[in-house]
Simulated assay, not measured.
Amino acid sequence: MLTEEQLTAIRQLQEVCETHDGVEMKLNWDMLKSRKGDQEDFFIWKDGTLIAYLALYAFGSTVEVCGMVLPQERRHGHFTRLWEEAQEAIRAGGFRKVLLNAPGESRSAKGWLAGQPCSYSFSEFHMQWAEQPVGDNPGIAMRLSEPADKAFEVELDAEAFSLTAADAEHYYEERLARQDERRYIIEADGNPSGKIRVARSAGESYISGFAVASGLRGQGIGGEALRWILQHEAPTGNTICLDVETRNANALKLYERIGFERKQQQDYYEAALPFIQ
């Protein structure tokens, strides 16, 4: 579990790096605030100031890696040192896939990645809603997820996000601890037809885990569910955002039609590590 001092230091380092580099980092704050173990976060401090940080984010058998170094402390091997420490935790965790995350416009991150045994995997757009009228959603009903919905949610996660059944179940259990997140079931004609999650924190409402059952896609269910979410989140005054893979043309078209705008891009590289088989 991260302390308030650690969380504040991470936030401050993020702000400095983003301002200096003109980028937006993906630090998954909902996950940082619900940490359970002590082998997911790696720090380098100097005179009481956090100068380098690396985080691991587990998604079943896949782990994502994100980190940053204070601008004036770069080129001193700090991030490489943290990465070496993190590899031990990755090995101990038995992960099968490692994805290194970097802002698309970060020259310092891309420079470091160029010296690593990794290959480009995919990219995501970070999208933000520009407030506008969204209309009604008469064809669906939304309710909070219940324990009885577990099998439906796990199966839908596995199918929609290409996860193994074991990974989908692990991810479901991990998310139950996130106190700032609301999990919704989308119902059409009285039957569970999809799901969507919203995490509120620090002036942001972040949408994730959005999926409609494969046999019901193309019927407008997803669009109506998104409109319902926007109607309920807009009054909070929060920035409403989400991430979507750049190659997902159908999702991009839907989000842009409702008013989401593309912001920065995040690139993912798969690490080729000797202990990952």
Rank of each mutant, 00 (worst) to 15 (best):
A58H: 08
G37D: 14
L144P: 15
G48W: 01
L13V: 15
R182A: 13
A52R: 07
L99H: 09
L7P: 04
D157P: 00
E24F: 15
N137H: 04
D243F: 08
I90G: 03
L254T: 02
G93F: 00
E155W: 13
A225Y: 05
A188H: 01
G215D: 09
G190W: 01
E256A: 02
I258R: 01
E73D: 12
M127W: 05
W228Y: 13
N248L: 06
Q277L: 10
T8E: 13
G77C: 03
T3Y: 05
A234F: 01
G93C: 03
K33Q: 13
E24V: 08
I10A: 09
R11I: 09
P235N: 00
A177T: 13
R35H: 04
G77H: 08
R247Q: 13
F161Q: 01
G77F: 07
L99A: 09
S121I: 08
Y255I: 03
D157R: 00
W112K: 11
I185Q: 02
S123Y: 01
Q128C: 03
Q179I: 14
A213D: 13
D267R: 10
R178I: 14
Y53Q: 05
G104K: 02
K110L: 09
F79R: 02
G77P: 00
E131H: 06
F43G: 05
K263A: 12
S208C: 14
Y53V: 10
P192C: 07
Q39L: 09
E124Y: 00
E64C: 10
Q132N: 01
R178A: 11
H170N: 15
K46A: 12
R182W: 12
D38K: 12
D157N: 05
P103H: 05
V23Q: 12
V23Y: 02
N101K: 11
A160E: 04
F260L: 03
M127K: 00
W83C: 09
Q219F: 09
N101L: 12
Y57M: 04
G115F: 06
H170K: 15
R182I: 10
A86G: 06
D30E: 15
L156E: 02
G93K: 06
E24K: 13
K195F: 05
F152G: 01
D38F: 10
L70N: 08
S121M: 11
K263S: 13
R11A: 12
D38W: 12
E233C: 11
S162C: 08
R74E: 11
K26P: 06
E85W: 15
G237Y: 06
Q266R: 14
R197V: 14
E159C: 08
F125E: 02
Y171D: 14
K46Y: 13
Q72M: 09
T49S: 12
R217C: 05
L2I: 11
G48D: 01
L99Y: 08
A158C: 09
P103N: 06
